[in-house]
Computed example of a mutant assay.
Amino acid sequence: MRTDRIFARLDREPEPPKIEIPGMSRTRTALFGSTLAFYMAIVWAVLITSWLVALDWKIMLFRPYEQWPQLHAFLDYFVVLGQRGPTAVMVAAWLGWRSWRQHTLRPLLTLGASLLLLNVTVGAVKLGLGRRGPHYATEIGSAEMFAGGDIFPSGHTANAVVTWGILAYLATTPRARRWLSVLSAVVALGVGATTVYLGTHWVSDVLLGWAAGLLILLSLPWFEPLIGRTEAWVFAVRESWRTRRRLGAARPAPAGGRLSPALFPQRQPTARNAAQADSPAREPVTAGSGRAAGGATRTAVHLTQRPHTARSERPPVTPAGSRRPPHADRTGAARPGTSPRPVTGG
C-alpha cells in the first residue's frame, strides 16, 4: 500500500481524545531513587562476594531443572517472552495499530526510546562487570566477576520488564493501566524465575535485571519532551513531502515533448525594442525605384523560371568541334598572312 493512501486513511479517522502524558511526580521520583539504591546495593553485594553470592551457588547446585524436569518443555517456550527480538516485534505491532488509530507516533517513539535506553545501560554494565554464568563458573563460592562474561544483569529479565511494562505506561485509562501493570509484572517475574530454573542466570542477575528494567520505565517521563519534538519533526517532514508531491501533480506536463511557453517568463521590452516597434516599417526595394544601404541604386533582375526536366528526358546533343582550346604552338593550318614554322631537330 502506498504511503499517500495510508496518510489519507489517517486523515479520515476521527480525532482521538487527548492523551495524558505521565509526568515526573514526587511518587515516581521517590520510586526511582529507591530502585536506584537497590540496584547499587545488588552490585556492591556481588562485588564483595557477600551472602548473595552464596545464595547464588546454593540454588545453582540445587539444579531446579533436575528437580522438576516436567516443567522444562513449557519453560523453554515461556522464556521467549523475555527475548528482545520476538517481544519487540509483538509489542511494536500493537503500538503501531494504536498509533494508526490515535493519529500519533508517541507509542512507537516511546518504545524505541525505552529499547535504546535498555541496550545502552544494560549492555554497558554487562560488558563492564564481565560476570560469568552458572554453566561457565570455575570456582565454587566465587562471584566470577571480570572474567569476560556478559550475564550480569539478566538481559531477558530487564527486557521483559521494559517491553511489557511499556504497555502499562502508555495505557489511556486507569483501569487498563492497572491490569497491564499486573500482567507485565507477572510476565517479568516469570521470565526471571525461568532463567534461574534453566540455570542460565544467577539469582543476583535476575534481581539486578528487574531493577534495571524498572529504572528505565520510571525515567521515561524525563524523555517525553524529546519524544514530542521528534514527533513534531516527523510530521513536519511528512507535510513538506506531501506538499511537494501535490505541487508536482498540479504542474501540467509538456505535450508532445515540447516545453510549454508558460514555464518561461516573457522578456520585458527594452527602450531600443520599443523604439524599433514604434518606427514605420521599411518598404521593400523594387527594381529601379529604391536605393540600397550603400547609396547605389540596385536593379532587380528577374530570371525566367524554366521547367526542370530529368536527365533521361533531355534530348542528346552532339558537340560541334573539339572541346579543347586552340594552342598557337601546335602544328596546323597556317593563318593567312603568316608562314609556317620550320621544323627543326628532325
Rank of each mutant, 00 (worst) to 15 (best):
S260Y: 06
V191P: 02
S154M: 06
G155K: 09
T297C: 10
G288H: 13
A333K: 10
L47A: 15
A185R: 08
G33L: 15
P22K: 01
V46W: 07
V196C: 00
T318G: 04
I59S: 00
L180S: 12
F146V: 09
T49G: 14
H103F: 05
F152Q: 06
H72R: 15
Q70T: 05
I216F: 04
R101M: 10
G23V: 08
E239V: 10
G228S: 07
P280N: 09
T270F: 02
L116Y: 07
W210N: 08
G321L: 01
F38S: 11
F78S: 01
A249L: 10
I6Y: 13
V237N: 11
R9E: 13
G190D: 07
A236Q: 12
P64Q: 02
W100Y: 09
G123N: 05
P336T: 07
H135S: 15
P107C: 05
A274E: 09
S114Y: 03
R132K: 14
H103I: 05
P280M: 10
F223K: 03
Q305T: 12
R98K: 12
L81T: 04
S289V: 13
L215S: 00
T121F: 15
L61Q: 15
L71I: 01
V186N: 06
S339H: 15
T110H: 03
P225K: 01
Y197L: 00
R84Y: 14
T200R: 02
R291T: 12
M145V: 14
V191D: 01
P284Y: 08
A211F: 03
E231K: 04
Q67F: 06
Q268S: 14
A212I: 04
T230C: 06
E313I: 09
S184M: 05
F235H: 07
R106G: 03
S154Y: 04
P265G: 03
L215F: 01
T121A: 15
G165I: 00
P153H: 06
G321P: 01
L127I: 15
G321F: 00
P14I: 00
G256C: 07
V234S: 10
P319L: 14
V301W: 08
